[in-house]
Amino acid sequence: MAGQAPTIQVPTDAELLQAQADLWRHSLYYLTSMGLRCAIKLGIPTAIHNFGGVTSLPDLMAALSLPASKQPFLGRLMRVLVTSGVFAAGGDNSHSEAEAELFRLNPLSRILVDGVVADEHHSQTSFVLAATSPFYTEAALGLADWFRKDIAGPVPSPFEDVHGASLFHESTALLDQELDELVTEGLAAHDNLGIGTIMRECHDLFKGLESLTDCCGGDGTTARAITKAHPHVKCTVLDLPKVIDKAPSDGIVNYVAGDLFHSVPKSQAVMLKLVLHHWSDEDCVKILSQCKDAIPSHEEGGKVIIIDIVVGPSLGPVIFEAQLLMDMLMLVNTRGRQRTENDWRELFMEAGFSDYKIVKKLGARGVFEVYK
Rank of each mutant, 00 (worst) to 15 (best):
L175A: 02
A62V: 13
R337H: 14
A139C: 03
G115K: 08
F135T: 01
P154C: 04
V155A: 02
L16R: 15
I287N: 04
V116E: 12
D59M: 11
H262P: 00
M328N: 07
L331T: 15
A62W: 04
A322G: 11
E97F: 10
S126C: 06
K246M: 07
L175P: 00
K149H: 04
E181F: 07
A140Q: 02
E181S: 11
P241M: 04
T213G: 01
A118N: 02
L66M: 15
H121S: 03
S96V: 02
D308L: 12
F261C: 09
P158K: 08
L325R: 13
V80K: 00
V270S: 01
K41A: 10
N50E: 14
G301L: 06
V310R: 03
G301A: 04
K149E: 11
L362K: 00
Y29S: 12
R335I: 15
D214K: 05
E346L: 14
L212C: 05
I307G: 03
L276I: 11
I8C: 11
I151S: 03
S211A: 10
G208D: 08
T222G: 06
H278Q: 07
T12Q: 14
T340L: 11
Y356P: 01
A39N: 06
A364V: 12
G251N: 12
M328T: 11
H190V: 05
V264W: 03
V370L: 05
G301D: 09
N93W: 12
V359K: 00
K70A: 06
